[in-house]
Design a protein around this nucleic acid. Structure first.
Lengths: 252, 252
DNA sequence: TCAATAGTGTCTCTCAGACACTATCAA
DNA sequence: TTGATAGTGTCTGAGAGACACTATTGA
């Protein structure tokens, strides 16, 4: 074991870059996409003190069994929950993105329902906060982010929005039980445009993604049927994209 | 510069993992998808001596400006050409995939036309060879690969095949000029099934991806119109996937 | 009764699949 | 002429968009 993590061998003339993982944790709060950010420590030697950043950090080769394991750990650490969706977005590595030198980051996207968050661990500590991605008029804008995290967040959002055009991905922003109107609202928030109700419902019901429950959601108006996301179904690829992608411009 | 690549700081109690890049270089030769592999050195301390592996290796933090830059360098090094398509597939990192210890690899997929390869640098050295992915009956099968490269190659192929269902990706396996029959053949090889001629041609021509040339390709039969891939068009997302994905099973 | 939200009926349009048909070359 | 490959005409069907319609609740 000690041998495994020995210093670079003679055949390895280059210094190893710093290896980190960052997690884009998204949820839906107040009918808005929100991202969980942490405020960086104000300690000597720490880059970007006081700045907001994606949760993440250096891979712990003693305890993390893999990159994905590291991402899961950081997610659990910040939210206290296991996200129903976690995927790798990509990796970025160069000499300038971290002032400490050549570094790599492995970026993951986690989607989770806001309802599952504990009030305390769900991101309400002083150094941990949810930020709306499209702040209401006059509301708080996203702060400047540490490192190249704005770019990483952009890539994660592009992935989510791109996949929302032809997969069921945004379903993971909801609890397992929901109404079709709620699901449509989630897609609309992610895509930033409204969708046609009948077409949307047909699309979802034909997909076999959800099962009808006997219960209804009681609201102030007409009650709505509840559906449950089938756990054994993975991400669904619809046979068609939702709308023209404006020609040849596709998702990332 | 020297400071940037200094040893891990005190705030970094974990040994840094080995950082590598591997490139899946695919082309179409003899109407078959082929992957370029290198035979590993038989030197002391080198893992998997004599085994075939994806081209790649340790990131050179002195010369590689970024991970992608490193992939481009390795590609140029092995093939002598700049591939018309290079994308990141993903990253894998854990303690066991490399016997030397905790390591990460950043996997890229390169697609290129066989015609552009120089006969010498195109992969004909003793330790560099093209291997057909679906060998003709009785032909040479893919050898066992070093490290977890079989898994990495599988992920690259899944990406190519998945995207072939709803994007123009396989077009990069051809030279810039081709006939529609040739293009259809490429898609068929990638997808492993035959496609309907009329639908395929309509799909391509409606996409605006190609422009008609005045020239014809003279063959032994009726000459075929030549088309040229427009360089300013990127990857095209078709409005529909080619066929049912067998329910909810989608591309990676 | 009305306002609001849930949910349906039905037409149109686009585009992939099927498949038979014509066109153009060499031998 | 035939064989082979290039390329077209045209019908079908799935599924997204549009939009008007009905249904069910609280106030």
């Amino acid at each position: 074991m000690a041998k495994h993590n020995a210093a670079p061998a003679a055949c390895e003339p280059y210094p190893r870059p710093l290896c980190t993982v960052d997690v884009i944790i998204l949820t839906l709060l107040d009918a808005t996409l929100q991202v969980l950010l942490v405020q960086r420590e104000d300690a000597p030697g720490e880059p970007f003190p006081g700045r907001w950043a994606l949760p993440g950090g250096i891979v712990d080769t003693q305890h993390d069994r893999s990159l994905e394991d590291c991402a899961r750990r950081k997610l659990l650490d910040k939210t206290g929950v296991v996200a129903p969706h976690l995927e790798q977005i990509g990796s970025w590595g160069d000499a300038v993105r971290d002032p400490r030198g050549w570094s790599t980051t492995h970026v993951y996207l986690a989607l989770l329902p806001a309802a599952t968050l504990h009030p305390r661990r769900g991101g309400n500590a002083a150094d941990l906060r949810w930020f709306p991605l499209e702040p209401p008029a006059g509301g708080p804008a996203l702060p400047p982010l540490a490192f190249d995290h704005a770019r990483l967040l952009g890539a994660g959002l592009a992935r989510l929005r791109g996949k929302a055009e032809y997969t069921s991905l945004p379903i993971y922003l909801l609890p397992q039980t929901f109404t079709l109107s709620e699901l449509q609202a989630v897609f609309q928030v992610v895509l930033g445009r409204s969708l046609e109700k009948k077409a949307f419902r047909t699309r979802i019901l034909a997909s076999g993604l959800v099962e009808e429950l006997d219960e209804m959601k009681e609201t102030s108006r007409r009650p709505a049927r509840l559906y449950r996301r089938k756990t054994d179904e993975g991400l669904h690829y619809f046979p068609r994209a939702l709308e023209s992608h404006g020609g040849s411009v596709g998702p990332s």
